[in-house]
Amino acid sequence: MTNRNRERLAGLGFIFIWIVGYLIFTLYPIFYSLYLSLFKVQMDGADLLLTYEGINNYRATFLSDPYFVEILIQYVLETIINVPVTIVFALIIAILINQNIRGKGLWRTIFFLPVIITSGPVIAELMNQGITTLPSIQQYDVIGLILDNVGAVIANPVQALFDQILLVLWFAGIQILILLAGLQKIDRSTYEAAMIDGAGPWIAFWKITLPSILSLITVCIIYTVVSMSVFTTNEVIIYIRNVMMGESTPAITTGYGYSAALSWVYFITMSVIIVLFVVMVNIRKGVKS
């Protein structure tokens, strides 16, 4: 056996468990759910009764389900607004704690708190109690002002954003970690050189900071979209689970097959959002170079 082959074999040995796990717990379920989404699935004791439906399940999600399209649109609009807000705040916080400030450890401790408080019921409880909005926003009726000036299509997600502004910021835990690490990697001397050439902090941010961490922002965007989309209080996934458990009764069909179709529609929607964001962020880079 050649040296090269021996190395490959050893490497495969290390990742062998991953390959097995991927086949069992990822690839097989993916194809199985894709397969089920083409059927009407009925439970018969422990067995499944399959009736071939073709794309009827998918058609039903858009045509005859009274709720799904509505909550999906709501989800898309909210995500499109919330993700940039999360990233911008994460970036602001990362830049702030990267400055020469007193009590760095204390500030970091506070801003990384969301990393550990991500439990669904706790967040749901906070939402119920209305703690996820800031009192001053309601006091000054910011939302009323916005509602008066733009149509309901834009105003509703904006209102949702303000209602949950704390929640949205709380999604920024890991992103702050990632961006902070990126900021610390930028060489200080680059800034000094720019200062000598007469660049202020504002220009330095756009010309040095942002380009250096652009790839990390992409990572953060993907992470934010995914974590928001699979979070326990997300209405779409609650709906999908209810359909799967037969707890809600949409017009045409319930159960595994239909909920599989819903999940795939959801996944595709999510992927499109991710691709859109990533393209948007990287367009700037393309234009520049």
Partner: peptide
């Protein structure tokens, strides 16, 4: 280690992060 199809495998791995658990949950 130098692995055959390493890039493909790592791509699959990242994909498994993006796929929502709703898809794999029922199987």
């Amino acid at each position: 280690f130098r692995l055959p199809f390493k890039k493909v495998l790592m791509g699959l791995m990242i994909m498994s992060f993006i796929i929502p658990p709703q898809i794999t949950m029922l199987p």
